[in-house]
Design a protein around this nucleic acid. Sequence first.
DNA 1: GTTAAAGATGTTAAAAAATAACATTATATT
DNA 2: AATATAATGTTATTTTTTAACATCTTTAAC
Lengths: 248, 248
Amino acid sequence: MNQRQQELLDRLNRSGKAVIEVEAEHFGVASMTIRRDLRFLEKNGLAVQTKKGAIPKPKIYAAPLNMAEDSAVKRKIAVRLLEMIEPSSTVLLSTGTTTLTFARLLAQQNLPMTIITNSIPIASALFQTRIKVILIGGELRTTSLDLVGPAAEKYLSEYHIDLLVTGCDGADAQQGFYTSDLNLANLEKLSAKVSDKVIVITESRKFGRKALVKFAEIADVDAIITDNHLKAIDRELITRNGVEVFTT
Amino acid sequence: MNQRQQELLDRLNRSGKAVIEVEAEHFGVASMTIRRDLRFLEKNGLAVQTKKGAIPKPKIYAAPLNMAEDSAVKRKIAVRLLEMIEPSSTVLLSTGTTTLTFARLLAQQNLPMTIITNSIPIASALFQTRIKVILIGGELRTTSLDLVGPAAEKYLSEYHIDLLVTGCDGADAQQGFYTSDLNLANLEKLSAKVSDKVIVITESRKFGRKALVKFAEIADVDAIITDNHLKAIDRELITRNGVEVFTT
DNA sequence: GTTAAAGATGTTAAAAAATAACATTATATT
DNA sequence: AATATAATGTTATTTTTTAACATCTTTAAC
């Protein structure tokens, strides 16, 4: 990378964008030269070419965080859960999109509490709040920004948790809760074991969809928070197990 | 925003990019329609139009993340370090801006190796590459997205590392290396202990600036990689300790 | 139900931008 | 200085984007 390319990259990072004609003027070179420079920067993962120029390459870790948009349904569930949280308690918040929505809500509340999680997006969402955040170490999954594996389990086994809050990929009112990753299922089982109380938060549409691995029986949990489209029969089956059901 | 635009945004966020012709095909509409949709998404701050399509709008995150831009000096140091890395080795990459620059370089190379780190940005930068990433658990610092504390130390103490790569906040050619956080210093000391080899990468301007806590003597490290503005006297003092110095 | 209006989508010609190919200039090497 | 090599500039060609307008769809009013 030559002097001009470096300065171009610096200007790009400083201002957030580069316009070919403007840069060609600034450096006193042909626009073709700037085109070649931007091509070079893109090739090296430092920039992304846009319509008439380029922008800095979006940092990789930002993208997955943006992926999980908060849906209206998830936000309602999160608000319902918030009412049930004891201030100053220690909560284990497992990876998932609904739990992430809840974490974003918590960040706004800024309560003095401790959150333990295996999700990088959740930890990031709680960054620079009054909440003390402990991230469980482990192997980074290639499918999502969270940590699982034996090391994660070992790490977690030394904690004692007041409340576990987790989501699920699938649920059945008689069978229990499912996730699509075996490693994650193991971690979830252990999480429930070290926690005094377990709450599952999930959209009602997850009911009837079984995923790869079961990580908990219905009776293993203390409460389920879901939206108001939960079928009456499912609700009946759950409460029969002594599990509380809260809807939005 | 209509149904198609919603789904288009969804696909955009999921895959990280949208190509006009591909999307037109997928939705069974004219490419002009997708152009109009992307124009709309850009206008609403949800996407940035690129050469033949668009990417999701890079969200600006907390200041500490954005400040860590790759500078030309850091990139040169990172390139120099890359030449010295054994493929398939296990490297402990400590938190820092220079180490983050190196991680970004590594992500482009996509070598089959294992990286252990206590930095969330570093772990994220290596997400979805062939590199196996292990994130050390611990307490999230409020000043930067990394993990420290007794739990982190306990976690780390069970590993054996080929090579530790770390930066520093301050350095002195006679006294050693400094950082501004006591917890981090403790972790750094332990990191050096569990590693066969230690390389410090740092900009030469850090020399002569002492920070709060010393975490290593000069003689504790095997090599230092810095830029070519390192003073001759500093270089002399370092090599006298049997420590190799590489400059860009 | 009909009809007008507004909005969305499709089509195509014109404009703009990007590329490729080659010419020229600068830089490095011997 | 001669030569090779790399970088930059120029321009013709191709591709992409835009703008303008035609057509189709939806909505709302009557």
